Simulated scan of single mutants.
Amino acid sequence: MNIDNANALDPEVFALTTLEKTFRSDDTAWQFLQLNEEYNAAFEELTKEENDSDALESILACIKDSHSVNIACAQDTTCMERFGIAAWLSPKQKLLPELKNPADSWFFPLIRPVQEDSVATLKRQGRSPEKREHYPWLTAHETPFGYGNVFKFGPSLSVRPGMKKRAHESKFVFVAIDCTVPSHGQLRALEVLAQKHRQYWNDRICSTKQPTFFVEAIGWRDIFRVDKLEPDQWRTVGIDTLGPIKMQIAECRKRLLQVHRELDEAGEIKHWPERFLRTMPKVPPSGSRRQPPAPKSNRYLKALLLIAQSMRQDRNSKYGRPINLIAEDVGILRRDSTQRPQWMKVFHNGMEETHVRRARAVVNKLYAWLVHAQVSFAKDEEQPKQSSAAHS
């Protein structure tokens, strides 16, 4: 807070707290989803149902400190499809509970790419994994939050103490990526999945610095069936798990971004914003005089969150909360204040037409975009956290 006198409004009213600066996209998205009326109503209704003890235990087992976590109807998985969240977490939970595996995500259902079914692929190709000597086919077990242990099909490639690694040979992991949404989140999940595979191969086969990756149509090499996925909207993506994973992910992102833009331009997908402003909107000049912008510490997403929180106070009102009351709630208007910077006046004037509408959109739907695009209050395009056992 930075206020020069008692009557002045705080110019850093939308600045991030120390905690908010550490938020990842999941944490940021939860701040909006917990205000979603449909989510709140659904959670309240499900609290009337009894929790299945086994289902609840499997969820709590993934949470670092689960004692104070309130999960409703653990056996009901409709939250994944309806809201993209792994479990029915109480909207009164101000912060997302920390997960035991730092590479996991509360919004894994949103960013989960379709994992290759290795056995099914081989059968479609007329081959059998049992006859592929020294080539186990790997598939990672999926939890509601991410990837668990890797299952091996076919003969294992043995490893003994002191045994020399084999020369490099590519070990690919293939997934299907949905290009109707920003691919950053799905590629984050692919990076985690690739690291899982790499952990198995790394003790057995030498790695390489040479990238080898594929971004191909659905149906390519018969890895994914065309009748299961929309060919125009999905792509088969594969990377060498013993190659430079981050470099390959970056190259795949470029190609998938182009596919996404082409679909958007063709009007074949619902419109997702190219990006959200992280800093506050610019202030137009007043006549020939340039107006100072809002301090750089202010963040636009934080402003939208405060607006959304204010709007919820009159959620049962037919007309909603008046704009001036919202402006007072968020700290850009005070009746006894004689001083108000121009950027606050401009922001206030644009609230009804722009900012309130955007705040409502993020609460109702676009919180998912934050996860898809890996955007948080402070950062864009996050790098995935690695589990302690992951190799670089």
Rank of each mutant, 00 (worst) to 15 (best):
N202D: 12
N202K: 09
D203N: 09
I205C: 00
I205T: 01
I205Y: 02
C206P: 00
K209I: 08
T212F: 07
E216F: 02
A217R: 12
G219W: 01
G219K: 00
W220E: 10
R221Y: 11
I223W: 08
F224Y: 10
R225S: 15
V226W: 05
V226D: 04
K228V: 13
K228S: 15
E230D: 15
E230Y: 10
P231W: 07
P231K: 02
W234M: 13
W234Y: 15
R235D: 00
V237K: 10
G238P: 02
T241V: 12
L242R: 06
L242T: 03
L242C: 07
K246N: 15
M247T: 15
M247I: 15
Q248T: 07
Q248F: 04
C252I: 07
R253D: 11
R253F: 11
R253Q: 14
K254E: 10
R255D: 00
L256D: 02
L257P: 00
L257T: 14
L257K: 14
R261C: 07
E262Y: 02
E262R: 13
L263P: 00
L263K: 03
L263Y: 05
L263V: 03
D264C: 06
D264N: 09
E265C: 11
E265T: 11
A266W: 04
E268A: 10
I269H: 00
I269R: 00
K270G: 04
W272S: 07
P273T: 07
P273N: 05
E274T: 08
R275G: 09
F276A: 07
F276P: 02
L277Y: 11
R278C: 06
R278M: 11
R278G: 09
T279G: 14
M280R: 05
P281T: 06
P281N: 05
P285N: 12
G287C: 05
R289P: 01
R289A: 14
R289H: 11
R290P: 03
R290A: 13
P292R: 06
P293C: 05
A294I: 08
A294P: 03
P295K: 05
K296P: 03
K296V: 11
K296L: 12
S297G: 04
S297K: 09
N298Y: 04
R299K: 14
Y300E: 03
L301M: 03
L306Q: 10
I307H: 08
A308S: 08
